[in-house]
Amino acid sequence: MQTVTKPYISDYRVKGSKFLGYLYPVTTQEEIDTVLESVKSKHPTASHHCYAYRLNPNELIEFEQDDGEPKGTAGLPILNSLRSSEMINCIIISVRYFGGTKLGKSGLIEAYGNSARLCIQHAELRPIIPISRYRIVYDYPHQGIIDKLKNDFPLIEQNSVYLEKVELGIACPTDVQKRFEKVLESYTHLFDEFEKLDDSYHINQNN
């Protein structure tokens, strides 16, 4: 899975029609509504504002909208472009200005698909890593154990607090989660507190 962390725009034209593609990162319905309102306000005279989005790596939500184009000719090809690139937590809006020549159903499917694919091709994509998050409280003399775990597993430290004791927030990629938890079991008696928080995801900013 992958996503974007900033907007990207594409411009695709065929037989006089102009398709402006907008790719935005989104994680909530409120963000989707804000993006849609913004794009529509930029193009109030456009013929159509078609879009699709995919949200939530852990419980996938998908939606597509044809906005007056024949059913299945606009939102679905945009959605399929997101699917084929394994994009998540993002929306693509394709704004069409009609050029006077009808494209037909197959032409529309190709045009909206190309508009979406151009957005993705222009974008800097970031991998999304499914993770499980943990909270560990321990005394400083046990820091060596944590350092060893960090060395043996690709752990991601999150929201830690270093005071009289260490309250460590740590995330483990789910593909090594079972092995990590098995190793962790041998150390839990040394920790003051230990709990698994939830399953989430991490955007890799270094790739």
Score class of each variant (00 low, 15 high):
residue 1 M to I: 11
residue 3 T to H: 04
residue 5 T to D: 03
residue 8 Y to H: 07
residue 9 I to Y: 15
residue 10 S to T: 05
residue 12 Y to I: 07
residue 13 R to V: 08
residue 14 V to L: 11
residue 16 G to H: 08
residue 17 S to I: 09
residue 18 K to L: 15
residue 18 K to A: 10
residue 19 F to Y: 14
residue 23 L to K: 01
residue 24 Y to H: 14
residue 24 Y to V: 06
residue 25 P to A: 08
residue 32 I to N: 03
residue 34 T to I: 12
residue 39 V to M: 04
residue 40 K to P: 04
residue 42 K to W: 09
residue 43 H to S: 08
residue 46 A to V: 08
residue 49 H to P: 03
residue 50 C to E: 01
residue 53 Y to G: 02
residue 55 L to T: 00
residue 57 P to L: 14
residue 58 N to Y: 12
residue 61 I to K: 13
residue 62 E to K: 14
residue 63 F to N: 08
residue 65 Q to D: 07
residue 65 Q to W: 09
residue 70 P to C: 15
residue 72 G to W: 12
residue 77 P to W: 12
residue 81 S to N: 03
residue 83 R to C: 06
residue 83 R to Y: 09
residue 84 S to F: 10
residue 87 M to F: 07
residue 88 I to V: 11
residue 90 C to G: 00
residue 93 I to A: 02
residue 94 S to L: 15
residue 95 V to T: 03
residue 97 Y to E: 02
residue 98 F to L: 08
residue 99 G to I: 09
residue 100 G to F: 12
residue 102 K to T: 07
residue 102 K to W: 07
residue 103 L to I: 05
residue 105 K to M: 14
residue 114 N to E: 04
residue 115 S to M: 09
residue 117 R to W: 05
residue 120 I to R: 00
residue 125 L to Y: 10
residue 126 R to S: 02
residue 127 P to Q: 05
residue 128 I to V: 09
residue 131 I to D: 00
residue 133 R to N: 09
residue 138 Y to F: 15
residue 140 Y to W: 11
residue 142 H to Y: 14
residue 144 G to N: 10
residue 146 I to M: 09
residue 147 D to C: 06
residue 149 L to S: 03
residue 149 L to V: 15
residue 149 L to G: 02
residue 150 K to M: 10
residue 155 L to S: 00
residue 156 I to H: 03
residue 159 N to V: 07
residue 160 S to D: 04
residue 162 Y to K: 07
residue 164 E to C: 11
residue 167 E to G: 05
residue 169 G to I: 08
residue 169 G to R: 03
residue 170 I to Y: 02
residue 171 A to L: 07
residue 171 A to D: 00
residue 172 C to E: 00
residue 175 D to P: 06
residue 176 V to F: 10
residue 179 R to H: 13
residue 180 F to Q: 02
residue 180 F to D: 01
residue 181 E to A: 13
residue 181 E to M: 13
residue 183 V to F: 12
residue 184 L to E: 00
residue 186 S to T: 14
residue 187 Y to T: 07
residue 189 H to Y: 13
residue 190 L to D: 05
residue 191 F to H: 03
residue 191 F to Q: 00
residue 193 E to I: 14
residue 195 E to G: 11
residue 203 I to P: 02
residue 204 N to W: 06
residue 205 Q to W: 06
residue 206 N to A: 13
residue 207 N to D: 10
